[in-house]
Amino acid sequence: MNARLLPLLATLVIFLVAYAICYAQYPAMLSTRVIGNLLTDNAFLGIVAVGMTFVIISGGIDLSVGSVIAFSGVFIAVMLRDTGLHPVVVFALLLTLTTLFGAAMGGVIHFLEMPPFIVTLAGMFLARGMAYVLSIDSVPITHEFYEVLQRSYWLMPGKGRLTLIGGMMLIVFIAGIMLAHRTRFGTNVYAVGGGVQTARLMGVPVGRTTVGIYALSGFLAGLAGIVFSIYTSAGYSLATVGVELDAIAAVVIGGTLLTGGSGFVAGTLIGVLIMGLIQTYIIFDGTLSSWWTKILIGMLLFAFIVLQKGLVWTTGKRRMAGG
């Protein structure tokens, strides 16, 4: 079997085992209701984590996404409050804005040869600051179109609801998987992550790819912002602090190497679901402090980093013996 599938498999096994444990204690957790909620509650995180997966596979990082989500919420709320624009128009405006924002960061990273960490850290402050400028208070969204969006769902067998935003996340994941594995852009992302210098010598358009990656991440952060505003019916500049870190955690738990070059969008979906599952378990239990979520995720992350190190080490070893 291909060694690079191993982290993905490990994630899948952990998810299934975790779910089995939950099911043994609370059989209700296997209902489509719980699954529906799992998808709805984590929709914005999942969407933004898809973008983060591309960024990390390319060997970069995007710290700005949490702030971009908050900015998106405030932008939508303020626009709907102060202008007569239809939400769809506002969405289009917003997505253009966040995509350009991401592209600009990618451009700085590539053309000025700056580390992604610094550039997107600056982007993080900038986006959060813009959100404050628009409004310091939480701005409620009351538009009939929003109610339509919130009320649309598909009733799954077993009375579970696949909401619009939950479904949206699944579509984004499918599109992400196709983009990663079935397009030239996707292969170029892996190539850049494998080694910029070599990729360039092989004829990969490194600049275009880097700009594209951060533009994609910006676009998906904007989309996550829309989803989050539908989820909460408000825009608040202090919302989603630290979501970029949750997204990074989901990507790593999903089996993507932080060093770049290797990983799977599908793994990220499982990563998001594992994190959601832990949260659901704690809610079901009722007595545990919600901080246990953080502790468990921390432990999982650590275990995964060790697993990946071990994997890199053993494959390196094997090659030596075989050479």
Binding site: G195, T198, M202
Partner: peptide, 22 residues
Amino acid sequence: VYQEVNLLPNLSVAENLSLGHQ
């Protein structure tokens, strides 16, 4: 074929061969 490393270790053999003109 440049003198330095020419291919990407993290891609499959087929991807390396076809990169850019898949």
